[in-house]
Design a protein around this nucleic acid. Structure first.
Lengths: 334, 334
DNA sequence: CTGAAAGCGCTTACAG
DNA sequence: CTGAAAGCGCTTACAG
């Protein structure tokens, strides 16, 4: 691996000069510059970001912690982050936590050791104390849907989303509406469910805990929730799932039972991941601008690193939008 | 940020000693050790991986270049890589190329500058020359389904997979079978298609170019291919799509046309991504062990970095397995 | 059992 | 317009 010393020697200048032509950080005589450039070319010189990072105290790398990058929501989010990061000259380290506190801590530790300039932290629970090391190292953090003091965050209007989804079903004439919640002990799911509950109650319907099941955001849990609901003595005529993945699992469960969507039962999801427009039937859902969300989070982080944003924590809110497709219809009259 | 000097001072020892208790690299008197450990704890010391990397010439970081991490195939692959890497003490940098040569080159450059120990390179075309810089820097590379001299690779039995999928349809009685190919100029798609063709010809059926459409692996392209096929004067009774995503798009297209799968037309995919078991109808597909693939690739890379594998390029082959679900049936008799 | 010193490859005041 | 030197935070022979 050729170093700045090799280049300096070949070009017959000092390493300072090489460094300065590299960074355009002070005027260099044109002839000298050309010689240096030629030497770099000839030696296929690639400056070491490591050495640079040591002295600049900036690695131009950010850490991204997600529960699971296979989940389309996080995949899309990672994409948005990577996109923005690339354009801004940052690379991103991918860390999957599997919703495990130990893995989160292990990764946080690794990221600090690698001296990342910042981290985007999609935590699965509300454990603020895990952020302490970042805080004491002065590493900026951006979270999603969290309310940690001093930490930037992007919020999603979860309550409103749950409300809108449910209201849509009520407006279609549904009276018995079930809900598949998610299991992160966070606003994420809880707010969507309370939006569901409020929509029910504001429309004079009773909230029945038996109609709320807690899944784990997976296809399998959506499917088993649907199976469970349809085996009740008095099954619901519609289901609101807290994410599209579970909604898709539910469609599959219903299909297994020989039930048709939306003829026999209506279904609303949340997120609008890309397959949702291609399911059979196409899914009605609350669309979240996930990629934009990722880009926004990355921008907040980069701006903080660059000092564009001062120390005070900022909050931004993104709202979902109901997208009506084929999976919802008035309840079947039997 | 506290350094090894701070720890040494607080513990009243030299930095050599601190380094040695940190790395357990030479015996240290128990009492001294305890003092050092206490100092590290007190100062919340986190050794800088940057400084360590400078002297060790190893970053314990690998680069992953994929066309798009949102594509479930690459998402699953990234997961397998990250999993194995985490256990082996490596972190992974996520790079999306969007199938663009320029982005690949830019990322390759960045990865070299950041001195990654190796790269896993899912390239969208067969451009071997882009690997030259890696080669001259002696950075190990693992590719997928590529045959670059001196470069490790994991091959998939694409031809066999395409053959098996098509044969399954033929065995069900189909005679007019279409194919949705992918657009990477690689064995990836080409071999699957030639497997399809060989299955046809070995069973006495003619290969009709009009029945092969080139998509771009996306939902949208699968859908439009299906629409195209069904508008032909003599539409096929079955479709083999070169990945599940396009197959799912095709189901959607057929649904739009009011056609039922598999009653009106049968469908086979490739990959077996997780949703494929949950589509309506559940998709018959050639299952690829994608996560294992990722783990295997990462292991090959880590072993090469660690010197476990010598310089000679190794090739491993993974085979797909037909998973019959609901999307295939004998052709409809009208 | 422990320490002093060189070196990894850069950037950046400080001088001239 | 250019160079010599210190320093970023570690590891690792070399000595004792």
């Amino acid at each position: 691996m050729t170093t700045i010393y090799d280049v300096a020697e070949v070009a017959g200048v000092s390493i300072s000069t090489v460094s300065h032509v590299l960074n355009r950080t002070r005027p260099v005589r044109e002839e000298t510059r050309t010689r240096v450039l030629a030497a770099m070319q000839k030696l296929e010189y690639r400056p070491s970001s490591l050495a640079r990072a040591m002295v600049r105290q900036k690695t131009r790398t950010i850490g991204l912690i997600v529960p699971d990058n296979v989940n389309p929501f996080f995949a899309e989010l990672a994409r948005g982050i990577e996109n923005y990061g690339f354009d801004a000259g940052y690379s991103v380290m991918l860390c999957n936590s599997d919703q495990s506190a130990e893995k989160e801590v292990a990764y946080l530790d690794m990221l600090i050791s690698k001296r990342v300039d910042g981290v985007i932290y999609m935590t699965s629970d509300a454990a603020e104390e895990r952020l302490a090391p970042l805080r004491s190292q002065m590493i900026p953090v951006v979270t999603f849907d969290r309310d940690f003091p001093g930490v930037h965050t992007v919020m999603l209007e979860n309550h409103r989303g749950g409300f809108t989804a449910t209201e849509h079903l009520i407006n279609l004439g549904h009276r018995r509406i079930a809900c598949v919640a998610g299991n992160y002990s966070t606003s994420h799911s809880q707010d969507r469910v309370s939006g569901y509950r409020d929509a029910l109650e504001q429309n004079g319907l009773v909230y029945d805990p038996a109609l709320v099941l807690i899944g784990d955001w997976s296809l399998a849990s959506g499917k088993s929730a649907a199976l469970h609901f349809m085996r009740m003595a008095q099954p619901p005529t519609a289901i609101f799932a807290c994410n599209d993945i579970m909604a898709i699992g539910a469609i599959s469960g219903l299909h297994t039972l020989g039930l048709a969507v939306p003829d026999d039962i209506s279904l609303v999801g949340f997120d609008d991941i890309s397959v949702s427009a291609y399911t059979v039937p196409a899914l009605t859902t609350v669309a979240t601008p996930v990629r934009e969300l990722g880009e926004m989070m990355c921008q907040m982080l980069v701006d903080t690193i660059g000092g564009v944003i001062d120390g005070t924590a900022i909050r931004r809110t993104l709202s979902g939008k109901l997208v009506v497709r084929e999976s919802t219809a008035p309840p079947h009259r039997r």
